[in-house]
Nucleic acid binder design. Structure first.
Lengths: 220, 220, 220, 220
DNA sequence: CATGAATGAGGATTCATTCAT
DNA sequence: CATGAATGAATCCTCATTCAT
């Protein structure tokens, strides 16, 4: 239990620093691996049916190890969600500079689809409907998701308002409702795609969906 | 063991019949009460966090009583969902005679909204997204919801196809995709409404939503 | 609920007496029916797996009715066992006058086998090994079975002692042990018979078994 | 995720091997402790009245721990029985080489008695009458006990048949019936011994019982 | 009393979490 | 820290018993 004490007593500051770096890299790698695993398992089974043991096994670590990185199951779930939100949001922010608000919204739709396609539906669905699902699962207002949703929604609504003010979209429907409707269309597309077994090509749907959003179902 | 004298047989038969009637009425009332309670509790907490004890308490019966009416928790959930599906579907079928396919689809949207508004969000949301939620929760193909969804979807797609053949909607998007998109729009509306705390007036949204479905967001 | 009060007020003492008789006959019939059912069901399923509802159904009465005749499940079981013991013991007592102790023991063996064949193994097995089974099931000393066993054992041992004193059986084994061994042989025969599915002919085994008891397995 | 530096790999392998050994020893010890406890508790209370909590308490572990070693209550019971059967059978097989079939059967009887005396009645009784008890409790054909019984019965019947062919036992009773009768005698002896409170000396009964089996109760 | 539904205590089992190694 | 087994609280479900009709 203490046979390496002597070994560890020797190393000088430099070695220790390197070791620290390795260690923190290692820690990050563990954390990532667990979150990846959590994404897959939660996606496959849902929050309640996913067992901590499943996640640990999927991550290739022991059950106890998960608790060295996360306080409990809730925290694993939330961290996973937060990571997803952050990645998506980062990309969205990157597209913020696009001048035309409609082009911007179209780009965002595309971004979301691309992210989902990269990361598998299961996790993705949670990312998309996280807030809702959570609202259904617990009645707790989950700050994390609310915030994530709110910040996306804020951008989206703002872009829509801008489009409205430029006369690019109808004004008889409030712009936040329009943003919500766009969201509903992308959700519907994602669900349908997931039900179909996640065939490649989701990101290709962004344009037609956005086109539909603009022009509706009416024959031209 | 036929211990009854003949002179006692007559009144007994009558009494028994009445008693049966009362009993079956009572049984039906219990069943309804439990399903109503289940709707509220599942809605409030989700499938896993809702305990049988919660449902029983909400229904004002003992825990064991629930099991006199339903085999287990799953069956309570499914029965509750089935009841909702059936009621909605019945109304939908009633509108089947509407000549114009678009008017028919509009009427259906209205029907769904009206039902949801009547029955509170919590249960309603499940009715709407039942298939999806379940798919997320279990990954099991749930025959009940699949069937309910399928029969609605069949009607909806058929109406859409009819509309397409009559040149009422665009043909560059397959009619089942159009049906799915319409579904996405109503879902989005319902979610938004639920988030807002279910203010009165959901059914009034049917027309604008359907209008949006037809014409899109583009300024006219 | 009281519509027959007037009818019941009229009858004179004679009618009442008759009615009482019918009633007590009826009560007895119910009791018997329930005990019969209990015998079959306990036999089929064992004490714990037999449900009160099973017994009631088998007897053709409602669950609650059983409780009008017996305080609880234990009492049903014990009453059933007692009835069996009593019937067998009554017959055994009837054979008490047989002069030759060995003939008497042979007759008793035959009596037990005959009873078992009449009443089906399942109940019978319990009758035979009641005391033992009970001892295994609960650690409670069950007075009823102990007494039943004791009174049979007393008779059996006494007969064996008598046979020993007359030089009809060996004396190097105590007579109570011999009685126990005879019991073991009959048990073994009954078990084998039960396992074979209770084919007719158990009572025919009494003589060979008793013969074996006397002469053993050795080739003559 | 191979975070181990190579210089750390060597000692670790060694440590891990030792740790594995310790762990598997510990596991085996737990398993044994639980089975021992199960033997005592099932013996004391019977299958149904024995609660998993009782077994856990008797074994000095938490309730959940039992489930780390056995899938459920049935498996605990069966494993316990299987262990007993196996030990007895192993010893029986060891005596297989005895030339004289009667001496062989006598040795087997002795073996069974010795095992029972070593391990306390409660468990022992189950071992002896396991098949029967189980048949009464469940009516299920229990493969485990059937097999155990069958393999013992096969050896026993074969030896008896051999004895018959050599003219050592009577031929008017089929040899499998003789085997069953011998079994009945040993059972009866065990029951009597258990009722008497398991006094030392059971194994001494083997010879007289076997002698009785051969010569019967008749005075010489 | 017969009935059959309501009751709720009791018990098997699961699994998030802890902890010794 | 990684490990993986121990823990025991929590929950579904059963069924003996009660009770209103």
């Amino acid at each position: 239990m203490s046979k390496r004490a002597t070994d560890e007593a020797r190393p000088d500051a430099g070695v220790r620093r390197v070791r620290e770096a390795v260690r923190s890299e290692t820690r990050a790698a563990y954390r990532e691996a667990i979150l990846d695993a959590a994404g897959r398992v939660f996606g496959r089974l849902g929050f309640h049916d996913a067992k901590m043991a499943d996640i640990a096994r999927e991550a290739g670590v022991a059950a106890g190890t998960v608790y060295n990185y996360f306080k409990n199951k809730d925290e694993v779930f939330h961290s996973m969600m937060a990571r997803g939100h952050d990645v998506v949001f980062e990309r969205i922010v990157a597209d913020r500079g696009i001048e035309d608000p409609l082009a911007r919204l179209r780009a965002w739709t595309s971004t979301v689809f691309a992210y989902l396609e990269e990361h598998g539906v299961l996790f993705s669905l949670y990312v998309r409907i996280g807030g809702t699902i959570d609202w259904l699962q617990k009645n707790t207002v989950d700050t994390l998701h609310e915030q994530a949703y709110a910040r996306y929604y804020a951008l989206s609504s703002a872009a829509m308002a801008e489009a409205a003010s430029k006369g690019l979209v109808r004004r008889d429907i409030p712009s936040d409702e329009l943003a919500s409707l766009l969201s509903g269309l992308t959700d519907a597309t994602i669900f349908a795609w997931a039900r179909a077994g996640c065939p490649p090509g989701l990101r290709g749907k962004a344009d037609p969906i956005f086109d539909f959003f603009l022009h509706g179902a009416k024959a031209p």
